[in-house]
């Protein structure tokens, strides 16, 4: 057991541009931590899991706290957008239901007011709630260093529990989610370990679109958290559904496949069982939302 101690001392650097932040990172490799909302970082520092010499704040960098339309690419979410902002956005609730629901689940109002979407991904906890939703929505990350930027799909981002492909001098700046096509809908279903405000035991997000006029699943993505070393896609379950006419039976089968794709370590049997239940519920809700979605039905 680690006692939660007082914050260790560190130097705080406030960056005013991405470039400046990258410069500080590359000049002090291994000694710096980025501070977004601090809801993960400060706890880890108090537990002495990380003891950075410098902490860089990103608050002064303009543009990182906005949700904006980015033409064909989709919706661009700045890394500093808080869970609260996403959860309460009518646009998110309507078009990216699974993400709004996931962000609404995170912690308490205090945590949602501070915690950021980028921090949730970069912390890379296996139980990060926004990850399954963003995986289901096909999110692409913009990663930046002093040398330039790269675009990486979210499923390539996580490499293990609390680890990512981020270089030591690299920053996450934006998360882009393509608009869902046609009659589409998404949903997030989760169980916590014990109580309402608690770590997610199993989380499943599904986003799907239907062929115009019927219940055939044109495209579907399923994201899971807390059931493997990192958040994952349930690819086999997705292919079971893709191109087929959706029925309760088919969804049930796909859910069982998703359960087999999960690799939980603790509470393993219960978690695997719950993957099937949560995937079934998420896909079913996404399907019903898509079927009720008027947008795109005429095209």
């Amino acid at each position: 057991m680690t006692y939660i101690r007082r914050l260790p001392s560190f130097e705080y650097v406030s960056a005013s541009t991405v470039k400046e932040a990258c410069a500080v990172l590359s000049n002090n490799k291994g000694k710096v931590k980025i501070l977004a909302g601090g809801t993960d970082l400060l706890v880890q520092m108090k537990e002495r899991k990380v003891v950075p010499e410098y902490v860089i704040g990103l608050k002064q960098i303009s543009g990182l706290n906005k949700i904006e339309e980015n033409g064909k690419a989709g919706l661009r979410i700045g890394t500093l957008v808080t869970h609260h902002e996403i959860a309460r956005s009518p646009q998110m609730q309507e078009n990216f239901t699974c993400l709004a629901k996931a962000c609404e689940k995170i912690g308490t109002p205090q945590v949602r007011n501070l915690g950021t979407i980028g921090g949730n991904l970069c912390n890379a906890g296996p139980s990060a709630d926004s990850a399954p939703a963003l995986l289901a929505l096909g999110a692409v990350l913009t990663l930046q260093t002093g040398r330039g930027e790269r675009q990486v799909p979210l499923e390539k981002f996580f490499t293990g529990p609390f680890s990512t492909i981020l270089e030591e001098d690299e920053l996450l700046t934006f998360i882009t989610i393509p608009h869902l096509k046609g009659k589409s809908g998404s949903a997030y279903h989760y169980l916590t370990k014990r109580t309402a405000v608690d770590e997610t035991l199993v989380g499943a997000a599904a986003a799907l679109s239907l062929k115009a006029g019927d219940d055939v699943c044109e495209d579907v993505k399923i994201g899971l958290c807390s059931v493997a070393p990192t958040p994952i896609r349930a690819l086999k379950a997705e292919s079971k559904l893709k191109g087929k006419k959706l029925t309760d039976g088919l969804i049930e089968e796909a859910s069982r496949i998703a359960s087999g794709e999960s690799r939980p370590r603790s509470w393993a049997e219960y978690r695997r069982d719950m993957v099937a239940v949560m995937v079934k519920r998420a896909v079913t809700e996404a399907w019903h939302r898509a079927a009720a979605n008027k947008k795109g039905s005429g095209k």
């Binding site: 057991m1 680690t2 006692y3 939660i4 370990k193 014990r194 109580t195 309402a196 405000v197 608690d198 770590e199």
Partner: peptide, 11 residues
């Protein structure tokens, strides 16, 4: 357990 993050009580 060492905090109310792990030790869960009803709220």
């Amino acid at each position: 357990q060492n905090s109310f993050l792990d030790y869960k009580m009803p709220t």
